[in-house]
Amino acid sequence: ETGKELVLALYDYQEKSPREVTMKKGDILTLLNSTNKDWWKVEVNDRQGFVPAAYVKKL
């Protein structure tokens, strides 16, 4: 879809709370919100949640 910003997972991340999502290094995720410098909201496999901003980079 146009207008979607994507990020690349630089590291594996295992969710530690229900508000977070698990990702694997190399995953491409849809970026939903990056206003917080530490935690970015992403969508992966129809799930939305937060990942550490340092673990992903914008494509």
Rank of each mutant, 00 (worst) to 15 (best):
V56F: 05
S17P: 05
L8I: 15
V44W: 08
A9C: 12
E1W: 04
E43V: 10
W39Y: 06
N33D: 15
S17T: 12
Y55A: 10
R47P: 00
K57N: 06
V42G: 00
S17N: 12
K16V: 08
G26H: 05
L6V: 08
R47W: 04
E5W: 13
M23I: 15
L59P: 03
V44Y: 15
D46W: 07
Q48I: 14
P18A: 12
E1V: 13
G3E: 13
A9M: 02
G49W: 03
A9L: 02
G26Y: 06
L32T: 04
Q48L: 07
G26R: 03
I28P: 02
L32I: 14
E1N: 14
Q48C: 11
L8H: 04
V44H: 15
A9G: 03
E5N: 11
N45A: 13
Y11G: 05
V51N: 01
K4Y: 13
E1P: 14
S17R: 09
K25G: 05
Y55P: 01
V21T: 05
Y11K: 12
L31D: 00
S34E: 14
T22N: 06
P18I: 10
T2F: 12
D46M: 11
V56M: 06
P18N: 10
S17D: 11
S17L: 08
S17G: 13
V56S: 01
V7S: 03
V42F: 00
P18H: 10
K4Q: 11
K24R: 13
K37P: 13
E43K: 10
T30H: 10
S34C: 12
Y13H: 04
Q48R: 12
G49V: 04
L32F: 04
Y11P: 01
K37A: 13
D38N: 12
D27L: 05
T35V: 09
E1L: 09
T22I: 03
Y13F: 08
K4M: 11
T2A: 13
G3H: 14
P52F: 03
V7T: 03
L29F: 07
D12Y: 05
V44M: 15
T35L: 09
L32Q: 03
S17V: 04
K57Q: 14
N45R: 14
T2W: 12
Y11F: 13
D46G: 15
L8D: 01
E15H: 09
E5K: 09
K24C: 11
D12K: 03
A53C: 07
K37E: 11
L8W: 07
R19D: 12
T22G: 08
Q48D: 06
E20L: 05
K58A: 08
N45D: 13
F50V: 07
V7P: 00
G3T: 13
D27C: 07
N33P: 02
E5P: 10
E5S: 12
L6T: 08
V7N: 01
Q14E: 14
T35R: 10
I28N: 02
I28M: 06
I28V: 11
R19F: 12
P52E: 02
P52Y: 03
Y13A: 01
W39R: 03
N36F: 08
G3L: 12
N33I: 08
Y13K: 01
E43L: 09
E43C: 12
M23T: 03
E43R: 10
V7E: 01
R47T: 07
I28A: 02
R47K: 11
Q48N: 08
Q48M: 11
T30M: 12
T30V: 15
K41R: 11
P52K: 03
K58F: 10
S34M: 09
R47H: 08
D38M: 14
F50Y: 15
E15A: 15
L6W: 13
K4G: 10
L10T: 04
V42D: 00
D12F: 04
A53V: 05
L6F: 15
Q14W: 12
S34A: 12
F50R: 03
D38W: 15
W40E: 01
N45C: 13
F50D: 04
E1S: 15
V21P: 01
V44D: 11
K16W: 04
N33W: 07
V44N: 15
V42L: 04
V44Q: 15
T30C: 09
E20V: 05
E15T: 08
Q48G: 06
K37V: 11
V42N: 01
R47E: 05
L29V: 07
R47N: 06
L59N: 03
K41F: 15
W40T: 03
K57R: 14
Q48F: 07
K58P: 10
V56W: 01
K37W: 08
A9H: 01
Y11Q: 13
A53M: 05
S34K: 07
G49E: 01
E15I: 06
V44R: 15
L59D: 03
G3Y: 13
T30Q: 10
P52I: 03
E1Y: 04
V7F: 07
L6G: 03
T35W: 10
A54S: 14
E15R: 14
N33L: 09
V51Y: 01
T30L: 13
E1A: 13
K25E: 07
N36L: 08
N45S: 11
I28Y: 06
L8G: 02
T2H: 14
Y11E: 09
M23P: 00
Q14A: 12
K16Q: 14
G3C: 15
K24V: 09
L6P: 04
R47M: 07
N33M: 08
Q48E: 10
D12E: 05
Y13C: 02
V21L: 15
W39S: 03
K25V: 07
S34F: 07
E5M: 13
G49Y: 05
N33A: 09
F50T: 03
D27K: 04
L8S: 05
A53P: 04
V44L: 15
T30R: 14
A54R: 15
T30D: 05
V56A: 03
E20T: 08
K58H: 08
N36K: 07
Q14Y: 15
W39K: 02
K57M: 15
E15F: 06
V56K: 01
L31S: 01
E5L: 12
Y55T: 06
E20Q: 11
D12P: 06
Y13S: 01
T2P: 12
K58V: 12
L8E: 11
D46F: 10
D46I: 06
L32C: 07
N36G: 10
T30E: 10
G3R: 13
K24Q: 09
A9E: 00
E5T: 14
D27E: 12
